[in-house]
Nucleic acid binder design. Structure first.
Lengths: 210, 210
DNA sequence: TCAATGAACTGAACTGTATAGTTTAGTTAG
DNA sequence: CTAACTAAACTATACAGTTCAGTTCATTGA
């Protein structure tokens, strides 16, 4: 078969290649971590020549940083869910339960999210700027949103909304880490709904008490 | 120096060398992660020849697994602190506050602990058996201990001690991850005592309510 | 309409270094 | 004497990053 027909003539646009490289780099880096990822495999995954990779990004570290920054600022920023508008009309019990469920759902529905967290946590010693970007874009945002809700919700009068927000998010994130990331589901089983129910009640009762 | 009993069946290798290799491997693997650690540097760190490393351990993966298993079962098992005996006489408020402080202290006092967690979390996708060993030896143990306390403490009558234990530990572990591991101290500052105070009050009030 | 230009890209070879793991010849110590 | 150990060389592979000759294609200019 001597055919060499190029089936499709792609327009040579630099930004499309850059996009493909970031996409291929995401696959590789999230699957194997920083050190175990090779630039040859990134180029193959991106469907691009190695030289093109190095014409768009300075080096392996530069690609990795650009890639993680992008994920932190875009793709995974929505993990902690957007706040609805008329939540203040709804009972806090329901709002909080829904929020918790949405937060944990997002981790399951984004299959890459667990690997993303693994890379962020595993490389947080060698790439502290990426860890800080994660905190700034994801943790801080969710703290702020929840504290805001705790502060403005008429039925809730918490003495320290910020600390309560930390307890809420911390409980759920740790649950996700132990059950999913560390494969603890069968070792320390716990129904998601049961944990959420207790967490929500703890906060509601606290508010009623004051 | 008293000598060890010379067993004969299998190969008899010096346990001192094995110890040194595990120690050197710990330094290297915890500092650089699995993929970025070289066996040459492990041998140098252990003060041992490379051939000796391979006579004690089958390969890099075998050394890594043996090493992490050991850390999980020994060195870092105490992180979540031993339970005292006469705690049941003390007010729960004080017991829980002390427990939380001890838990967070241990992370600071064991400077390697953060890197240990980074490796466990970062490699949990490629070494699920190590992640499970971590859950079995550290998370499960602390859940059990705290649930036991919640169940037996006369002043506390929690409706779900297991879930409450998860909330307690999850809040503290997440705090440690965000503030220390992800370098979030300056981005999302939070006094440790303030968080602990709120967490403890949340649980105490819940108990009084019932 | 048709070259001609030039920038983006390709594939493959290439450099230099690092790696996992083995082998060998020789040394130490019980 | 022997078994653990050492130092160093060695094999074979992989990697980051570069170079280069050649291809593709859109734009230009006549």
């Amino acid at each position: 078969m001597e055919q060499t027909k190029p089936p499709r003539a792609d327009r040579q646009l630099s930004s499309e290649k850059a996009e493909a490289i970031l996409e291929g780099g995401m696959q590789e880096f999230l699957a194997h971590g920083y050190a175990a990822t090779s630039m040859d495999r990134v180029a193959i995954a991106a469907g691009v020549s190695k030289a093109t990779v190095y014409s768009h990004f300075q080096d392996k570290e530069g690609l990795f940083i650009a890639l993680i920054q992008r994920l932190v600022e875009g793709k995974f920023r929505s993990v902690f869910g957007p706040a609805n508008a008329q939540v203040l009309q709804t009972a806090p019990e329901i709002v909080l339960r829904d929020l918790a469920n949405r937060l944990l759902d997002t981790c399951m529905n984004e299959p890459q999210f667990l690997n993303f967290m693994r890379v962020i946590l595993g490389e947080s010693g060698r790439f502290p700027q990426l860890a800080r970007a994660f905190v700034r874009n994801i943790e801080q945002t969710s703290f702020k949103r929840l504290r805001q809700y705790f502060t403005t919700c008429p039925q809730l009068k918490l003495s320290d909304p910020e600390a309560t927000a930390r307890i809420f998010i911390g409980t759920l994130v740790h649950f996700m880490i132990v059950q999913e990331m560390l494969h603890g589901k069968d070792i320390v089983p716990m129904e998601r709904a049961r944990l959420i129910e207790n967490l929500v009640k703890l906060i509601i009762n606290q508010a009623e008490k004051t």
